[in-house]
Design a protein around this nucleic acid. Structure first.
Lengths: 133, 133
DNA sequence: TGCATAATTGCACTATAATGCAATTATATG
DNA sequence: CATATAATTGCATTATAGTGCAATTATGCA
């Protein structure tokens, strides 16, 4: 499921985007897996955008994704020495404008809606639902 | 000399390029500072190219550069927790096609030409000199 | 002061990557 | 089987970033 030879620069490439770094920092600090709709509500970014960035992170070997019914849960991969080291780096990153802190706060609140540890609701933020026909 | 607020994604952005990552890995593994011509001979890339990438790394807060006569020495910055962690990550990176190992071997050889710990010769690789008038 | 050289930079060009919209796929449920 | 919805993707557009050449700057030295 993961590439045998990951080019190191592709690893950093995948973190060189604000949205992707927000995703990774959130999952790293929360120590949790999350589905797309939970990320949408936490980061307040449209689903199509996050979905694409999640794919990039998966291809870079940073995330693994697992489908459960209609939901897809994304979690950090950390079975390699350089990935462990990378997570330590991410934990040590500064948060100058408290953007990550805000993401994490929304995420924690969102996690309260889980039932039996699983997501049972869709996107809650009205302005990010696609149903705006 | 260095920015007060470095955006974390700019840090990864600066490592998301093969040439820049080669520079950083070389300086990190060698534990040495190096001038441009030494890097040109070690990485076998044209001076104008490396010079530009060095500038980007400097602006990202990863390198500091110091002029000594005609030579400019570049060294890693590591006075911050997340930079220390980043160096650990870089040390843990795989080297699938042994490119970094080759860079380091050329660098060590090149360092033998120093006198009193300072570079005294220019670019040695004939095909990378600009004098090809 | 003139020349050689270490290093940098302006400019044009090309390649790559992010974005938004709309459509589509896949799954659960009445 | 029809509908709702979680998630993904095709496409056109825009923005960003790397490259090579040639010119320029800055320094040491004869």
């Amino acid at each position: 499921m993961q590439l045998i030879t990951i080019q190191p620069e592709a690893l950093f490439q995948s973190l060189a985007d604000e949205t992707r770094l927000r995703i990774i920092r959130l999952l790293a600090t929360a120590g949790e897996e999350a589905c797309l709709c939970e990320l949408v509500d936490s980061l307040r970014e449209p689903a199509y955008k996050l979905s694409r960035h999640l794919k990039i992170l998966r291809q870079a070997g940073l995330l693994s994704s697992q489908k459960e019914g209609r939901w897809v849960y994304h979690r950090l991969v950390s079975n390699l020495p350089h990935l462990e080291a990378l997570h330590a780096t991410i934990h040590a990153l500064p948060d100058p404008d408290h953007a990550y802190q805000a993401d994490l706060a929304r995420f924690k609140e969102r996690m309260c809606l889980r039932e039996g540890g699983r997501c049972r609701v869709g996107i809650l933020s009205d302005d990010l639902k696609m149903e705006a026909k």
